[in-house]
Every structure is written in C-alpha cells, then in structure tokens.
Amino acid sequence: MKTLKDVKSGDNVIVEKISCTGSLKRRIMDMGITKGTNIYVRKLAPLGDPIELTVRGYELSLRKSDAENIIVK
C-alpha cells in the first residue's frame, strides 16, 4: 500500500482511497483530492516537510503526516 507520503517529487500518481476520517478527510476532499484524482508531486519544502502538489490545476501543500492518509497508485 503506497501513500502520498512515499511519492518522490516529480512523480504523478492517482488517488485510490483516503483513509482518514472526519474533518481532515473532508478538508482534503474539499480541496479536490478525491478518488481517481491525478496528483503531481512538485517538491518538498526546504526543510523536507510539507510537500507541494499540483491537483486539479493548482498548487496545494500538505504535511507528510497528513499525506500519509492518501493512498495512491
């Protein structure tokens, strides 16, 4: 099971499932990360965390601890 946390920068992945619940899940989904969404991992912050993604044509940043809840393939 691969999560978004493990994806190298520069890679494209597709969301399979969001494993957390509650407000965190809702917030992640509201921002456009839903099942089947294509995510491009742009880069890591200078200190290694958070990560920057391109989702649905815009830039979004997520902490690695939150990205761990997004299962991708």
């Binding site: 407000s23 965190l24 917030r27 992640i28 921002m31 958070p50 920057e52 815009y58 830039e59 979004l60 940043s61 997520l62 902490r63 939150d66």
Partner: peptide, 8 residues
C-alpha cells in the same frame, strides 16, 4: 490539518 493552497 495543514492543507493549504499555494496561490499563484
């Protein structure tokens, strides 16, 4: 959650 848009 730190889910933040990075606007252009």
């Amino acid at each position: 959650p730190f889910v933040m848009e990075l606007p252009a």
